[in-house]
Design a protein around this nucleic acid. Structure first.
Length: 366
DNA sequence: AAGGCGGGGGT
DNA sequence: ACCCCAGCCTT
């Protein structure tokens, strides 16, 4: 019998005891989090989308504000995307907001305004993958299915001494199979939360706090003293440096010329100041004039250097040179007026921006 | 299977 | 500097 089959059998045999001790630990040690006080599937869904690749502490204030602004799924579905993006401002991964909004409309149109309770229909909704589907099914609907996130992967790699690379698809499938063996028929939602909570509080990356762990007696990683080296990570991608320019163009009334980014690209749907990436060998001034002409059909003159900002993204590092300037010719509002406008200082913060544009506004005291 | 997709915190 | 974070989607 191969190693993984043995582990699956072991998981099946120890599942009952693991669930019992883990749930007992959870009830004594769990954090009070706002989404743990609700049974509303919409609120649970929202929390799970916000929690994707985002730390709990960062989510809490956004979650509260979002539910205040969009208390029900119907409220969300009938609101314009622009307002949803504004509520998502500074949270990153804005496709989550676009998908959440699109999914809410699909749920109203196809599912009578209620989240479907079947896995295939859930995963067919934009933004809901294997993890989020499992989380909603177990936490909102009481189904005995696993919810395997980064915490659970780490915990199970240690608990069963899985030493194959986590980046490998076969490893992920194996871990999901282990989780399926462990999830109990009773209280599957709290069990999944407990497994994640254990990963967040004790079984953390680096050096886990094994002396306090309720599952220490079951842990093959602890038994083999290899828990600190698990899970085995995959390869890391390096982040290139990129350089860009942004032009602050104001009219005689002091209004700012702003442009909406394409809906499906980087920071899609958010507004920005005109400009763009520098081509190799290009000066900032040349780049600003060229990008404005290419993308907007306007001719600008570039004046003063205002600031240079660095912004870190997941896959590159940006240096952004910000200059003032003026529009020389070309009616900026004539074509494609829906994606460009003059915004007064009083109104400009009503539009959704990404972090780097908000930093510019802060620096200009707008 | 790999890379795009934000922003922030911890060490 | 590098790691990670209640992942998903596209290619």
């Amino acid at each position: 019998m191969d190693k993984r089959t043995t582990s699956l059998k072991r998981a099946e045999q120890t599942a009952g005891g693991i669930a019992e001790r883990l749930l007992a630990w959870y009830e004594r040690n769990k954090r009070r989090l706002p989404w743990r006080n609700t049974a509303d599937p919409y609120a649970i869904w929202l929390s799970e989308i916000m929690l994707q690749q985002t730390q709990v502490e960062a989510v809490i204030p956004h979650y509260r504000r979002f539910l205040e602004r969009f208390p029900t799924l119907e409220d969300l579905a009938r609101s314009p995307l622009e307002e949803v993006l504004k509520a998502w401002e500074n949270m990153g991964y804005y496709s989550r907001a676009r998908n959440l909004h699109a999914a809410s409309r699909r749920i109203v149109d196809l599912h009578g305004g209620r989240l479907p309770e079947n896995p295939d229909e859930l995963k067919a909704l934009p933004g809901i993958g294997p993890y989020t589907s499992g989380a909603i099914l177990s936490m909102a609907f009481g189904k005995a299915v696993p919810a395997v996130d980064g915490n659970v992967k780490r915990v199970l790699c240690r608990l069963f001494a899985v030493d194959s690379p986590l980046s490998d698809g076969a490893t992920q499938r194996f871990i999901t199979a282990l989780a399926e063996k462990l999830v109990p028929a009773e209280r599957p939602g709290p069990f999944n939360s407990a497994l994640m909570e254990l990963g967040a509080l004790l079984c953390r990356p680096g050096i886990p706090q094994c002396p306090d762990c309720p599952l220490r007696s079951n842990c093959l990683g602890y038994a083999g003293n290899c828990q600190n080296r698990l899970p085995v990570a995959g390869k890391k991608a390096k982040r290139p440096d990129k350089e860009a320019g942004a032009a602050i163009l104001r009219d005689s009334k002091g209004r700012f010329f702003i442009v909406r980014r394409p809906a499906d690209g980087f920071l899609g749907g958010l507004w920005k100041f005109p400009g763009g990436m520098l081509h190799p060998g290009e000066t900032v001034t040349d780049a600003l004039k060229s990008r404005c002409r290419e993308e907007l059909g306007i001719s600008i003159s570039v004046k003063d250097h205002l600031m240079t900002l660095q912004q870190f993204y997941s896959h590159f590092r940006l240096t952004l040179h910000v200059f003032s300037g003026t529009i020389q010719e070309g009616g900026p509002l004539s074509p494609a007026a829906g994606n460009r406008l003059w915004a007064s200082p009083a109104d400009i913060r009503k539009y959704p921006f990404s972090r780097v544009e908000l930093r510019i506004l802060d620096a200009l005291f707008i």
